[in-house]
Design a protein around this nucleic acid. Structure first.
Length: 468
RNA sequence: GGGGUGUUCGUCUAGUGGUCAGGACAUUCGUCUUUCCAACGAAAAGCAGGGGUUCGACUCCCCUACACCCUACCA
């Protein structure tokens, strides 16, 4: 396809679950790499020891797995490469492209405070940039990069276009802390280079960082990867996604009954488009996805649309995949492990269930007639269908069903004839019948249900409904 | 304070100087029906504001407004 194989990566910080925005970033990287026969790598940015936890790492891995985004090789730990990062910092130091800065954090903080008070730029200029080694004190120091002091720095971004900064607006950022540990900005660049990442697709909160990072690439004489800074996702109110919006982690979307493929489709369509295509398969997404189709404006989450897309995916889902999704949903989000018999019944009924359910929850609701067992206690709405009059009707209907041949055509004619003989609309008959068969006011068609549960069970449920 | 980015129906978006500004979700109203599930049909709804450039701007330039990001020995 192309001469240089594509390598992308997703690099989350393990400080919480897999964020929905992170999930989309991962998806874009995955689509781009997989659609081009490239590699999709996973790197855990765990250099912040205080906030990183193994549980969070696991949650992220689980989230990606649930979403169906598989990565190549083992997930790597950024923290474990700290020595290599420090090595690069020292190389830059010995090449005169970086320097030791002895300014203390207190000094810098005081400077910033004063600058702010006076309304000046808070950009810190270290006085140590050109101080010769001989004059260095014996004190803790950080290593800072020597940023260019004049001219411009610009990066070519696949989404944002050319973005330029004046050199004087950029400071000599720290590469290595006074305790010798590398700073994020250095770690990312070194890791991306070492891992052979060709395309850095990430949130546009990193756009400004890209300028700083490019200085490291340049100083090391490394080729820059292609950058693609994608706009962030906002909450339905247009504000930045935060705790008060709820539903931040992908597992919450799983709990709401969305399917992985539905969410993939929805997320791909958020901030990216391929003409007017709204509902598409993974194969199509893989074929169509390109950086040029990514928009620049932040997008808002819209649960209604998510539901709609998900409904399409449930309907077009492969039965095996759908069964797996349902089992996962039932086990994890409803604390209900389906028995083998329930699974078998579900598999049998899948074709009538999947056509009109937008979420797995809705699907399982409709499956109640096959998942539950006698006697069915009608819910509130179903109970309304079962008054003394309708019970009488069901009672009269029973003998007709006892003698009927159990085929769909036969049942249709039996029920229609019966309704006609009573001079009532079919709806008047189907309502109570539905309530009796499923205990619900919403279910699949009464014929589908009768065919699925069989004659004996149908009669038994009718009996139950008449009883009380 | 400094720097960067963004702004097309309520929402996601198509659109790169000449279009009745298209599609989808949602909404409203209908249709169908065996279901307050679903399906189907129709309607309504938009280029943030102001200046330019041009025969002609949603499209190009400038300004304003608003939003967001960066401005840490966090990532």
């Amino acid at each position: 396809m192309s001469d240089t194989p594509v390598v992308t990566r997703f690099a989350p910080s393990p400080t919480g679950f897999l964020h929905i925005g992170g999930a989309r970033t991962a998806l874009f990287n995955w689509l781009y790499a997989r659609g081009r026969g490239g590699k999709f790598l996973l790197r855990i940015e765990d250099t912040d020891r205080a906030r990183s936890t193994p549980e969070a790492t696991q949650a992220i891995l689980d989230g990606l797995t649930w979403l169906g985004l598989d990565w190549d090789g083992e997930a790597t730990s950024q923290f474990e490469a700290a020595t290599r990062h420090a090595e690069v910092a020292h190389q830059l130091l010995s090449e005169g492209k970086a320097y030791k800065c002895f300014s203390t954090q207190e000094e810098i903080a005081a400077f910033r405070e004063q600058a702010k008070a006076e309304g000046r730029s808070t950009l810190f200029r270290s006085p140590w940039r050109d101080v010769p080694e001989a004059e260095h004190p014996d004190a803790p120091f950080v290593i800072r990069i020597k940023a260019p002091q004049d001219g411009e720095i610009s990066i070519q971004d696949a989404v944002q276009g050319e973005v330029t900064w004046k050199a004087e607006t950029l400071d000599d950022m720290i590469l290595l802390r006074s305790d010798g540990t590398p700073v994020y900005m250095l770690a990312v660049v070194v890791d991306d280079h070492d891992m052979g990442v060709t395309h850095v697709i990430r949130g546009d909160d990193h756009l400004a960082n890209a300028a700083r990072q490019s200085m490291i690439y340049t100083a090391m004489g490394w080729d820059l990867p292609t950058f693609a800074h994608i706009p962030l996702i906002h909450g339905p109110d247009g504000k930045k996604l935060s705790k008060r919006h709820g539903a931040l982690g992908v597992e919450e979307y799983a709990a709401m009954g969305y399917t992985p493929s539905g969410l993939r489709n929805y997320l791909a369509r958020l901030g990216w488009s391929h003409g007017d295509d709204e509902v598409f398969t993974d194969a199509q997404a893989l074929e169509w996805f390109d950086l040029s189709g990514i928009g620049k404006a932040p997008a808002r989450l819209d649960f209604k649309k998510m539901e709609n897309i998900c409904g399409h995916h449930i309907a077009m889902s492969d039965d095996k995949v759908l069964m797996r999704d349902i089992e996962h949903y039932a086990a994890n989000d409803m604390q209900q492990n389906l028995s083998q018999t329930q699974k078998d019944k579900l598999a049998e009924a899948l074709s009538v269930l999947k056509g009109n359910s937008k979420t797995l929850g809705a699907l399982l609701d409709k499956a109640h007639f096959i998942l539950g067992s006698r006697p069915f206690t009608p819910d509130e709405k179903a109970a309304k269908q079962l008054n003394s009059v309708s019970r009488g009707i069901l009672k009269e209907l029973t003998p007709h069903l006892q003698t009927a041949t159990w085929s769909r055509e036969m049942l249709e004619s039996v029920l229609n004839d019966f309704a006609a003989s009573k001079e009532m609309g079919f709806g008047k008959l189907a309502g109570p019948l539905r309530a009796a068969l499923s205990g619900r006011a919403v279910s699949p068609s009464v014929f589908d249900m009768m065919m699925l549960i069989g004659q004996e069970e149908t009669l038994a449920r009718l009996e139950d409904a008449q009883g009380t």
